[in-house]
Design a protein around this nucleic acid. Sequence first.
DNA 1: GAAGATACGGAGTTCTCACTCCGGTTGTCA
DNA 2: TGACAACCGGAGTGAGAACTCCGTATCTTC
Lengths: 181, 181
Amino acid sequence: MEKPALRADARRNRARVLAAAEAAFAVDGLSVPLDDIARLAGVGAGTVYRHFPSKEALFQAVVVERLEQYGVEAQELIDSDVPGEAFYDYFTRVIEQASRNRAICEALGETSGSAYKAEAAERFRVNLTALLERAQAVGAVRADIDGEDLRALIVGALAVERFTPDSRHLVRVLLDGLRKV
Amino acid sequence: MEKPALRADARRNRARVLAAAEAAFAVDGLSVPLDDIARLAGVGAGTVYRHFPSKEALFQAVVVERLEQYGVEAQELIDSDVPGEAFYDYFTRVIEQASRNRAICEALGETSGSAYKAEAAERFRVNLTALLERAQAVGAVRADIDGEDLRALIVGALAVERFTPDSRHLVRVLLDGLRKV
DNA sequence: GAAGATACGGAGTTCTCACTCCGGTTGTCA
DNA sequence: TGACAACCGGAGTGAGAACTCCGTATCTTC
């Protein structure tokens, strides 16, 4: 349809912007000034806007990229023959990684952000739910929660982790709660 | 020392500003424009600054007021002869109330905000710890967490609650985790 | 290797917001 | 009740940040 093939320098700059944005958003979240990202990428502000219609759109692009990674990781675990372990491993890993990435924390915490509607985020939720249900089927996780609940709990765990880095034992409190019943 | 006794109108305006700020901050957090608060209080921006040196200071004043209430509530429960129930009741109540108050959520979530150093916030933590230790002494709460951990867990629970209103069953997951061991 | 399309940079524009300043008003006290 | 100090409102100021515009530079194609 509309793929006039980007010019070589344009393609290169787009990649640089994305990389700079990923790094900057991970540290400071959405509040980082766009001009800083441009400077970090060695590019003018105009160039950023040529590739992404708004700062928000750039943020989304970064977040979606990361969520897709999480989705892939979940799919790799989905056929594990120890669903309980698979679930807890995944949960723990996501918490640990995401808590060091402020962009992800903010995006997941958005109650009704458009990020959630993005196909990648939806896939994340779907995979998370699949992993959860398999673990519930073998009795490794309590039955009275669903995928949506789990997403909320992840948001909570991220808040804890951000508040008290190296809080593995606190996440364990939550995990123990999930095992119960 | 320095109490030249406020003039009657000044005293009235100060109270109005505080009330307006409490309401506005509870809904939108620190991000609400100060001019909005002034208008809500039926007062000019200058008047707000005459009573509080900065928007941040006003925010602190509001938060401290609320934290003191929590402190009082904790002290009322501290001599209960069912320390486990007292603890869980208090925990649940604080979560429910605070989750509807964005100012409190933001203040508690501040990793190293000066609010935390404020005497009221410190008293909150002390009372929380006392309640916790009594519950631990009778085996109602697992022994491997301390008051500081608990504050982190409260921050997490608040994030959950904000994300999924009416999430009583999710808080229960956390409480079950606290009972374990 | 030259023409023409495409992309670039960064100064400029516009908006929002915290905070200040001062001419006017109101409370207080003799 | 009058005079003085305390207090008030809100226009004004300056800083910061998102986004635009256009003269210039770079890539592509023939």
